[in-house]
Design a protein around this nucleic acid. Structure first.
Lengths: 247, 247
DNA sequence: AGCCATTCAGGTACCATGTACGCAAATAGG
DNA sequence: CCTATTTGCGTACATGGTACCTGAATGGCT
C-alpha cells in the first residue's frame, strides 16, 4: 500500500481499476481475504499466516501487502467476509422476536462455520459494512415500538452478548483441543475432564458442582441448548419492554 | 517442568518445598506471574514476553520454564491472580441484587486495573480457583430462592456477559490505540472518528447513526453508564425470576 | 570432609512470524 | 521504443516461543 498515514481499513479501499500505465494487479483484496478465511476454517487462524496465504495463492508473502496494509486489517476483512454470509431479509418483518431469533441463528451458524469468527469479533473493535448491516437489522427489529434508542442498543447488546458467549462455549473447548494438537475426545478425557472431576470431588464449590452434575440443559442437543438460552434472553427483553425500569 | 504429559495448569502445582538434594529454586511461580502482570498492566500483554519477564526478574528467559510449563499457562495464572483480587465477602448476603452489583463492580474494577484481563478471560476457557470462587459467589447469590440450577447458571451468564462486554467497550478503543502506538486522543480523532462520521453521513445506517447521535447514556460518566446497564440486566433477571417462561 | 545424585540457571540455537526495503518485471501512453 | 508507473517478490531483520545442554549449587551419604 501507499505511504498514507495509518487509518481504518474501511477508509482505505482497494486501489481502483485504472487506465494508466503500470503492471496490472494479479490478485485482489477479496481474493486474499477468501484464501485467509479458507485456511483459518480448516486449520485455525494461527495457520493463516502471510506466508501460508501467499503460498496458497501461488505467490510470495510480500505480494499480499499490495492488497492489505497489515495483518490486523486482514482480520477485519475476514470478519466482514464472514458476517456478509448472514442471510437476512432486506428489512425486519415487524415481529421483533422472530427477527432476532433469525439473526441469532444466522450468527451462530456463521460462528460454527468459521470457528475463529467470534474470537476475532470480540477481540477487536471493528465496524465493517457487513457488521453494520447486521447491527442495523437488529436495531430495526425494535423500530416502531416506540422505544428509546439507548434501550434498543442495550437490548441488541444483550442479544449479541448471549450469542457470542453461547457460541464460544459451544466451540471453546473444541478449539482449545485443536490448538494443542490433541484430538477432542482425548483432550476432554485427559486434559480438562480430570480437573473438573477433581474440583467437583473436592466439594469446595458445591453450586458449581451442582451446575455440572444436575444440569438438564447439558443433555439437550447443541441446537436445543442454544435455542433455550436464546428464548430466555428474548423473554428478558420482552419483560423489560413492558415492565417499569429501576433507577 | 518435568516431562509429564500435557494437562491443565491447575493439575500441575508448583514443585513443592522438599528436603532432598539439589539446588534450591531462586524464584517461584507466583513471582513469575506477578512480574508478568506488572508488565502487562504497564505496557500491554504483548509486552509480557518470556524474555522481558525474565529480564525484569534479573534472570534468563529459559529459567522461567522451571516454574511455568508454557506461555499459555502463564496467561491462565495471570487471569487467576487478577481474579483473586476481587474483594468479596465469604458468602452472599441473601440480597442477590446487592451481591451481584458488588461482584460486577469488582470485576469491572479488576478489568480496568488490568486492561488485558477481560480479553484473556474471554479468549480462553480457564477455570482457576479464583475464577471458581467468583463464580460460586455469583451462583450463591441466588441460593435459597428456589430456582432451577440451570436458570441460575443462565442468570450468572447474563451478568458475566454484560460485565465483559461493558468493560471491553470501556477500554476497547483505548487499548487499540495503545497497541498501534498512537496516543488515544489522536487515535480517536484521526483513526476511528473519520470513519464513524463517514458512516453516519452516508445515511446508509440510520438507526446506527441515531444510536451514535441521540444517545443519552453517552453523556454519562463511565461509572454511571456501567451502573445503568447493570441495572437493566438486574431488572431483566428480576423479571425472569417472577415471570413465567416461554418454551 | 568428600563424593554424588539431583535440581536449578541460563546461554545458545532453531524455527516461525510480520514486515521494511529494493529491484526486476510488466504495462500503457507518448 | 522509451519511460513513468505499478505490481511481484526475494532478501533481510527483529522479535517471539522454546528445545537442548552445560555448569553450578545443594544436601545426604559414606
Amino acid at each position: 500500500m501507499a505511504d498514507e498515514e495509518p487509518t481504518s481499513i474501511w477508509m482505505r479501499p482497494e486501489r481502483q481499476e485504472r487506465s494508466g500505465p503500470g503492471r496490472r494487479p494479479g490478485y485482489s483484496r477479496a481474493q486474499v481475504t477468501r484464501t485467509a478465511v479458507q485456511i483459518a476454517d480448516a486449520e485455525g487462524v494461527e495457520a493463516a499466516t502471510m506466508r501460508r496465504i501467499a503460498c496458497e495463492l501461488g505467490t510470495g508473502a510480500m505480494s499480499l501487502y499490495r492488497y492489505v496494509p497489515r495483518r490486523d486489517d486482514l482480520f477485519d476483512l475476514m470478519i466482514d467476509l464472514a458476517m456478509g454470509e448472514l442471510e437476512l431479509p432486506g428489512s425486519p418483518s415487524g415481529d421483533w422476536r422472530g427477527d432476532l431469533t433469525l439473526l441469532a441463528r444466522q450468527i451462530r451458524a456463521a460462528g460454527l462455520r468459521h470457528p475463529w469468527l467470534i474470537a476475532l469479533l470480540t477481540s477487536r473493535p471493528t465496524l465493517g459494512p457487513s457488521l453494520l448491516r447486521a447491527h442495523e437489522f437488529a436495531l430495526g427489529a425494535f423500530d416502531g415500538i416506540g422505544l428509546d434508542i439507548d434501550d434498543v442498543t442495550g437490548f441488541v447488546g444483550m442479544l449479541n452478548d448471549y450469542v457470542n458467549s453461547a457460541v464460544r462455549r459451544e466451540i471453546g473447548w473444541l478449539e482449545e483441543a485443536r490448538r494443542t494438537g490433541l484430538d477432542p475426545e482425548r483432550w476432554k478425557r485427559d486434559y480438562i475432564g480430570p480437573y473438573v472431576r477433581q474440583v467437583v470431588e473436592s466439594g469446595a464449590f458445591p453450586l458449581f458442582s451442582r451446575s455440572v452434575l444436575d444440569s438438564r440443559t447439558a443433555h439437550l442437543t447443541p441446537d436445543e441448548r442454544f435455542q433455550h438460552g436464546l428464548d430466555r434472553i428474548l423473554d428478558a427483553i420482552a419483560a423489560l419492554i413492558t415492565s417499569p425500569r429501576s433507577g
